[in-house]
Amino acid sequence: MTMQSFAHDVAEPAIEIVGLNKWFDDFHALRDIDLRVEAGERIVVCGPSGSGKSTLIRCINQLEHHQQGSIRVGGRVVCREPKKLEIIRRDVGMVFQSFNLFPHLTILENCTLAPLWVLKQSRPEAEATALHFLERVRIPEQAHKYPGQLSGGQQQRVAIARSLCMNPKIMLFDEPTSALDPEMVKEVLETMLGLAHDGMTMIVVTHEMGFARQAADRVIFMDEGRIVESATPDAFFDNPVHARTRQFLDQILI
C-alpha cells in the first residue's frame, strides 16, 4: 500500500490511443484521436461542451464503445469482450461528475464491494484497505454512514477512495468538481493533488485551470471531437498555438 506502488515500468506507456474514431449513430463524436500517456503522467483535458472529452475517457474503460482505431491500456488491447474488459477495468479507476456512489450501501460497503467481488479479497483485508483510503481522503469517521448522509464534497472523496481501493494503475476523472458547491471544490482538488503528488497516472477532464497549472504535465484541448492542442501547462496558458484555444481560454479565464 505504499505510494511507490503507483509508479511502475517507464518503458510501457500507460495508455496508447491510435486513430480513434467514435460515432453516435451519424454524429462523429471523436475524430482521429492519437494520444500516448506515459506511466505517472498527469493529463488535464479541457474544451467546450460537446467537444468529446467525456466520450474520450469513457472509451478508455469502454463505457462507450469505439468503432475505429485502437486503445491499449498497460499494453493490453481494449476490446468489447466482457472477460478481458473486466481485467482492464480493474486497473482503471473512474470518478464521475455525479459521484455515483451506491446509495443502498454504507460508505465502507461502497469501498469494499469491488475488492470483495472482483479481486476476491477477504473481508478483513478489503475493510483494512478501505479504511486506509478513507483515511487518506480524510473521512474515516463516516465509514458506517450512507452516501445520502454526506455532503457532495465528502461523497466525491468517497468515490475517489472507492476507486483507489481497487489499487488502479490509472485514474480517470470526468469533471469531478463540476457538481460541487464552490466551498467543496477545494477539498476534492486537494485530494486529487495528493494523488498526483504520489505519482498516479491521471487523466482529468476539468475546467479547474488552477489544478491544471499545479498538477498537470500536459494540457490537452479538444474541440469538435479532435485534439486541437497538447502542451505543457505553461506553454498552453501563456502561448497557445491555435486560435481556437486562445478563444476558449479567453472565455474561461475571463
Binding site: P82, E86, R90, F96, S98, N100, F102, P103, H104, V118
Partner: peptide, 27 residues
C-alpha cells in the same frame, strides 16, 4: 435507476451478473 449506478459498477470491473445482483436489483 440513474445510468450512473450501472456505469460506476462497470468501471469498477464488476461483471454483468454482479452488477445486477449487487447494485441494480436491490435498488
Amino acid at each position: 435507476l440513474p445510468k450512473g449506478q450501472s456505469e460506476a459498477a462497470e468501471a469498477l470491473g464488476l461483471s454483468y451478473w454482479q452488477r445486477q445482483r449487487l447494485i441494480i436489483l436491490p435498488q
